[in-house]
Design a protein around this nucleic acid. Structure first.
Lengths: 149, 149
DNA sequence: TTCTTCTTGCAACTTAGTTGCATTCGGTGT
DNA sequence: ACACCGAATGCAACTAAGTTGCAAGAAGAA
C-alpha cells in the first residue's frame, strides 16, 4: 500500500524504537494492497525468518495503540490491519468479499457520507463513520472454480 | 425491536416450520432493541428453559440463510444478530460502542450515502453498503464507573 | 404403529486471540 | 570486561466463539 512511508521515522515519532520485527510487520502491512489479517502477517513473516505468533499479536496491538496501524473487523471472526490514515493516506472505505473473506481498500472519493443528521441527534460520542461495502470481489466473480458441485 | 412482525408466518413463508426454539430465538432477537450476540441469545434462553448453545447457533445459521435474520459483525470477535430488513424494517446504520462492545440501531435517515461513484467504477459485485458508526455510547460516556484505577 | 425426516444434545475440535512466566537481547553505567 | 535493567521474544497454557460428527429424541406421514 505504501512506499512513501518511512516506517522507521513513523515508529520513532511515536517513541517506539524501530526494532527488526516491528519493521517487518509494518512492511508486510504496508506492502499489501488492502488490510491483512494477523494470521496472514504471521504466515508471511515466518517464510523469511521465524517469529512467534504471539510476538506478531503484541506488535500489532502496539502499533494500533499508537495509531500507526488501523484495526478493522472483517466479515468473519478475525481482525484486519492496514496503515492508519495519515498525511499520505486519506481515510477510505473498504470492500469485503463474502466469498473469499478478503478485504480491499476503495478509493477515498468513491463514497460520500452525510453524517450531519446523526451528529445533531446522537447522544453518545461519535468517533468514526466507516462505510463497509459487502459483495463478491472481481476475482471471485470470474473464477467460479473452487465450488465442489 | 418488533411487535409488528408475526414470527410464525415469517418462518412459514420461508418453508420453515415454526418450532418452539426457533420462535424463542426470534423473540429474543426481535424484542431486543439492537442486534444481540449469539452468546447473549443463549444466555437469555436458558433462563426460561434449557437449550444447547449449538442449537442456538444452528437456528441462527438457518435464519440467516433464509434472510429472516441479519448477521452483522461487531467490533469484537463475535457476530450480532438482528431482524433482517423487510417491509416493517428499513435498512439502517449501526452504532458500535468501543467501550462496552454493544451495538445499537440508528434511525434509517440519520446517515445518507452516495454510492454512485463506486457502483460505476467497481469491478466486483456490490451487494450491500453499510455504514458503521464507532464511538462511545451514551451509557458508557456518563457512567465512568468500571474503571479500576 | 412403523417409517422417515427434522430437531436437538453432547463431546470433541478449530480458529483467533490472550495471559503468565521465563529467557534473551540491547543498551547504560562502572 | 562486568554487572544490571528494561524492553522484546518465545513457549505453553488458556479463553471465547463458533463448528462438526454422531447419536438420540420428537414429530409428521404412511
Amino acid at each position: 500500500m505504501c512506499h512513501r512511508c518511512d516506517y522507521e521515522t513513523l515508529l520513532e515519532e511515536n517513541g517506539l524504537n524501530a526494532g527488526r520485527n516491528r519493521m517487518r510487520v509494518l512492511e508486510v502491512i504496508g506492502d499489501n494492497e488492502g488490510p491483512v489479517s494477523a494470521t496472514e502477517i504471521h504466515r508471511r513473516l515466518i517464510r523469511s525468518d521465524p517469529i512467534n505468533r504471539v510476538t506478531v499479536y503484541r506488535i500489532l496491538d502496539l502499533l494500533v495503540e499508537n495509531g500507526i496501524v488501523e484495526r478493522i473487523s472483517g466479515e468473519g471472526r478475525s481482525f484486519y490491519y492496514g496503515l492508519a490514515a495519515n498525511e499520505n493516506h486519506r481515510p477510505h472505505p473498504h470492500f469485503y468479499c463474502r466469498r473469499c473473506g478478503g478485504v480491499q481498500c476503495l478509493s477515498p472519493g468513491s463514497l460520500t457520507v452525510d453524517s450531519e443528521p446523526l451528529l445533531q441527534t446522537f447522544s453518545g460520542r461519535v468517533e468514526t463513520v466507516a462505510v463497509r461495502v459487502v459483495g463478491i470481489c472481481a476475482h471471485c466473480t470470474t473464477s467460479v472454480q473452487g465450488k465442489i458441485s
